[in-house]
Amino acid sequence: MTDAVANAKRALRAELRERRRTMTEPEREAASSRLTQHLVDLASDLGVRRIAAYLSRPDEPDVRPFVDWAWRQDIEVLLPVSRNDGLLDWAPYDAGAEEADHLGMPTPTSELLSPLAINEVDLIVVPAASVDRTGMRMGWGRGYFDKTLGSMEKCPPVYAVLFDSEVVDEVPRERHDRPVDGVVTPSGITHFSR
């Protein structure tokens, strides 16, 4: 990565973190309700039976109500568990106990599955710092999802979950960065052509 790209990513991430920190609780609650409905619509339209998602942290767009909805609909939900080698294991969501992985990310305490478990899902819902109008995703800098998506032979639709202001004209990019098929924001679902 060139210094210019690294600096541009670092600056954009800092700006986005600050925006997220300054959101009010009523703004977050309203965004969560709309995000949940759009994610439900997306999953229903695609007729998914198995999805890969994640458990959001307090500063992220809240996908937990969607994960709970999917589980109640008997849709199998796989959640990532980060490993020291930069790969993701997966664990089925069971609405049970949670713990933090070695990066402090919330994960279920259910059975741990290998990185290959994601190959059987119908939809992948990923976190992001930002996505540009062409579908290029910028994550938070650890590369877990880029590695996962880049290693899949047959990748199902991938949608990033963001606040509206995090869809931008352009994000700094590197060769390993992976685009997404769409974004889900409080104002709706945007699909990108591939």
Rank of each mutant, 00 (worst) to 15 (best):
R178F: 00
R34A: 14
Y144F: 15
P58S: 01
P92H: 04
R137A: 04
Y54Q: 09
A97E: 15
Y54V: 05
S56E: 05
D45N: 10
Y93H: 14
A30R: 13
L87S: 13
E166H: 05
R20E: 01
L35G: 00
T24W: 09
P127Q: 09
P106L: 12
A53P: 06
D132S: 07
M23H: 05
W140Q: 14
L16F: 15
T36P: 03
R50S: 10
D68Y: 00
A70T: 02
I75D: 09
G188Y: 10
L113I: 04
Q73Y: 02
I51S: 08
P92C: 05
S165F: 14
S56W: 01
A128I: 04
W140I: 05
D74A: 12
K9C: 11
K9W: 10
H191S: 14
C155K: 14
V180M: 09
D62K: 00
A53K: 04
V126T: 13
E170H: 09
L78P: 10
D181M: 07
V48A: 10
P26K: 02
A11N: 10
E27K: 00
T107N: 01
M23E: 11
L79G: 06
A53S: 15
P186Q: 03
L42Q: 03
T2R: 14
P65Q: 06
S33K: 14
P92K: 05
D85E: 08
V121D: 13
M138I: 05
H191N: 14
S187F: 03
D3F: 06
D177N: 04
R57T: 11
M1Q: 03
I75W: 08
K147Y: 02
E170Q: 13
R10I: 01
R83F: 04
P127E: 08
I51M: 15
E76V: 10
R175N: 11
R10K: 15
L16H: 13
V161I: 12
D59N: 11
A160Q: 05
V131W: 12
L79M: 10
D59H: 05
Y144W: 06
I118L: 14
A31N: 00
Y54P: 07
R72D: 14
K147T: 08
P108T: 03
A53E: 07
R194D: 14
A95W: 05
A91T: 12
V183C: 08
R34N: 04
Q73C: 13
R173W: 03
L79V: 13
Q73M: 15
A53R: 01
P106W: 12
G182Y: 00
E27H: 02
V81P: 00
P92Y: 07
E15M: 08
E166P: 02
L79K: 07
K154M: 04
A91R: 15
V40I: 15
L116T: 05
A31Q: 00
G141S: 06
I124G: 14
D132M: 09
F192H: 06
A70M: 12
M105L: 15
D85C: 04
N84K: 11
L55D: 10
T24V: 05
P92E: 13
Y144C: 09
R194S: 14
P80N: 08
A70D: 12
V121T: 13
P172E: 11
K154H: 10
A100G: 01
T109P: 03
S193G: 07
Q37K: 02
A4C: 09
A70L: 11
A70K: 03
K154N: 05
E25F: 05
